[in-house]
Write a protein that binds this DNA or RNA. Structure first.
Lengths: 118, 118
DNA sequence: CTAGTGTTCAACCATGTGGTTGACCAAGGC
DNA sequence: GCCTTGGTCAACCACATGGTTGAACACTAG
């Protein structure tokens, strides 16, 4: 069930702090301490945020001495984009058709539909 | 602060039921009753879900007799896509550069860098 | 006016989430 | 071995969220 995965990714990005972490990780990998520095919350809180991002598949982690560098995993972002774009395009396509219908109502003879509504 | 808006949209789509509602609204508008039918939760629960989507700016509503048809608003989806793509591309670009560096380490003379390491 | 249909409001409950603090584990530096 | 550095685990708290039920509202049809 990739449904659960999608839910976790959306939920992970629903938090402004976590979105900011993602934004910074897009620039380059970082340890929890570095990530925590700009925010005025405890290190543990940031550690939790990172764990949420990790469980959503958005970041992976490795070891470097005592540090646990966080690494942004862009594939999951692609998964989201695909989901969103699918329905956005579908909806906009529908609106285009609706616009067509409205235009047709404005001027009842749009083209040369030979059936003719004389 | 569009930050708050973005948080609400992501949070709204973090729920599978709400994502399914969005999926169905992409096909066409629907009232709360119709939306609720397939799910085995109460009508009130679905009404709440719709409200969340509405407050996130994902759906708008009108009146049609007693019914309150829900209408998918694709612009906000576009907002999300822009946010996601921005960092996905940034991250992938960074990885490409990293790949370049690694390739350079493999074969120290990639092109014709005229400084020459003869 | 009355009855019926579609939807929302209100109160409540269980669970999840973001935050805290304090203790603990892991890896190097000395 | 010992202490510092970087990070996690655990218990707890306040509050948000998804769910329920029952009453109320809005609007239409007789």
């Amino acid at each position: 069930m990739s449904d659960d995965r999608l839910s976790r990714v959306f939920a992970a990005l629903a938090d402004p702090t976590r979105r900011d972490i993602v934004r910074r990780l897009a620039v380059g990998d970082a340890g929890v301490g570095e990530l925590a520095a700009p925010y005025d919350v405890s290190l543990q809180a940031v550690s939790k945020h990172v764990r949420v991002l990790e469980e959503a598949g958005l970041v992976s982690r490795s070891r470097d001495a005592q540090r646990r560098p966080c690494h942004l995993e862009p594939e999951v972002l692609d998964l989201m984009t695909k989901w969103i774009e699918r329905y956005r395009q579908q909806a906009e396509e529908r609106f285009s058709r609706l616009d067509g219908v409205l235009a047709e109502l404005d001027q009842p003879e749009p083209l040369g539909e030979e059936g003719a509504a004389s």
